[in-house]
Amino acid sequence: MHISASSRQRGALAVLAMPAVLFTAMMVVFPILYTIWLSFRTAPLGHATQFVGFANYAQLADSPQFWNSIKVSLTLYVISLAMQLTGGTYLALLLFQAKRMPAILRSILISPFMVPPVVVGMMFLIILDPSLGAANWVLSLFGIAPSAWLASPEWVIPTVALIDTWQWMPFVALIVLGGLQSLPPSVYEAAKIDGAPPRLVFWRITLPLLLPTLATAAILRTVDLLRFFDIIYVTTQGGPLNASDTLNIYGFHIGFELFQFGYASALAMTLTAMVFGVVLALNRLRRAIDW
């Protein structure tokens, strides 16, 4: 009798939850399925779509612009992630040891990632303007030749990576700080008794113990970095000479400027697969190094 009542209760709960579940499924599943469906079709403006098999995927495999966008995305990903993990860890160590005003320091620290990326892009567009911006003016005070920054095919990716690092390094630092605060004090006490120097403590104890935290931070940043869009859209739109044309920017350009929705959907699915693949790999790595 009791079991039956519980089962009835579960059934009622399931019925009550059904609208929310269906709504969520529609909002998440439908766009993905629709994009997959569209990636196998051509969609001329104002006319019905037509099935083209794998033609859109074959087109991207043949496209030098697609391979350029993969190269740009991965380069930007590696440079940005390396800078953010290294800088974020260093910043977290400083904060961990800060004795004065830690709350104020943390508030200042989180301010960059509170700023919308579009505002960040606009801000740096003005600062880094080669003719009117403050960055070259500061360089000139030290007798250094002006740089084209975002307008240089060689420097655009490091510059964009720097902008993104300015915004997101504090986010990584906060995650790492949380990790540092949860490390077991007994290990450090033992190291102190053994007389281990601070550098050795960092390399042999802190860093290995922080690896799962760093892997989590890397996963969170990977999702954003591989889909890099907003700052580039505001500052360079993929230029100059496609030097900052990430896969997301390229797909957007094909879809919403040239209106080739079928091909753009194939690009979007490729990007999704790429993000899933890297995140899954990092997740497995995180599990392997967990302690």
């Binding site: 003719s131 070259n136 084209a148 920054w149 307008a151 360079t236 230029g239 100059p240």
Partner: peptide, 21 residues
């Protein structure tokens, strides 16, 4: 032209000219 002209559209051009540069 100005340094970084490959990123120049109407906004940057008008600003540069208006600024007397």
């Amino acid at each position: 032209g100005p340094l970084g002209v490959v990123n120049y559209s109407f906004y940057q051009i008008s600003s540069l000219y208006r600024d007397g540069r």
